[in-house]
């Protein structure tokens, strides 16, 4: 029975994970190493990589701060509308990313609610970097908060109360007591947030405008190459993203192992 179950899951993993992953790399190197290097060093590809990294560097810290703040006030205080806040945090999970992107177009697009005002003040949001950042922020909003809320709920508030009663102020209590208690959960949430920020397609696709070398992120760039039948080039960039994904999974596992070691001592 055990052998049967194990082989079923292994087979499943092989068909749906390993085979596609290997095929990405095979297709990427189909036309040789030179083509591979040329594809990922093409100015448009480099621009897409740069844009993706820039968006990630801006989005992950912002959502980390938001996640900590939201989890903190949800778990350490009781107030009216707490359940509403928890539901709102989950909203990006429930809404299709395309709809999320469209909402930003409706708000900030030329025909949108603030479109005219933005136009007269010469502020570009949609089809530009701010739009892409907003869309990514929205989609990756729940990751850190969702990871921290249950963790901080089980930890309770007595450690913080002990710190305050010993004369520490709120900031020192956070730095010396809360942060060490939540660090592994926080890192885990940040990694998930980071992975999604790099890979987000739908919402970004709607707001970016697909301007080559300007507003194309890596996933959008891959789509364009693919649609132009440049399979080797598309898969070359895709292989880069796959490597990022694999690295993320490895870091995630190290964190789980480390936090397991720490948690096991209690």
């Amino acid at each position: 029975m055990r052998i049967a179950l194990t082989s079923i899951s292994l087979l499943f993993l092989a068909v749906f994970l390993v085979v596609p992953l290997v095929s990405i790399f095979i297709t990427a190197f189909q036309k040789g190493w030179e083509t591979y290097v040329a594809s990922i060093t093409h100015p448009d590809a480099l621009a897409a990589i740069k844009l993706t990294l820039l968006v990630t560097i801006i989005v992950v810290p912002l959502n980390t701060i938001f996640g900590i703040a939201a989890a903190w006030c949800i778990t350490k205080f009781s107030f009216k509308g707490k359940n509403l806040l928890i539901t709102l945090i989950d909203l990006p999970f429930a809404i299709s990313p395309v709809i999320a992107g469209l909402t930003f177009i409706l708000l900030f697009g030329a025909q949108g609610l603030f479109g005219e005002w933005l136009l007269t003040n010469d502020i570009k949001i949609v089809f530009a970097l701010p739009g892409i950042i907003l869309a990514t922020l929205f989609v990756t909003l729940p990751f850190v908060a969702r990871e921290l809320i249950p963790l901080m709920q089980t930890q309770g508030t007595t450690d913080e109360e002990a710190s305050i009663s010993l004369g520490a102020n709120g900031f020192k209590t956070f730095l010396y007591v809360t942060l060490p208690n939540i660090k592994w959960g926080l890192l885990y949430g940040m990694i998930l947030c980071n992975a999604r920020a790099i890979g987000e397609f739908g919402a970004v696709s709607v707001v970016s405008g697909h301007i080559r070398g300007m507003t194309n992120t890596m996933p959008l760039h891959i789509e364009i190459l693919y649609n132009e039948y440049q399979f080797a080039a598309a898969f070359a960039v895709a292989s880069l993203m796959s490597i990022l994904a694999i690295v993320t999974i490895i870091i995630k596992n190290i964190i789980e192992w480390k936090s397991g070691l720490q948690g096991g001592g209690h």
Partner: peptide
């Protein structure tokens, strides 16, 4: 504020800083 009260508080489940 509790941090200004100069009160020593001992909790039932110790609340020691585990790290």
């Amino acid at each position: 504020n509790p941090k200004e009260r100069n009160v020593g508080f001992v909790f039932q489940h110790y609340a020691l800083f585990r790290h």
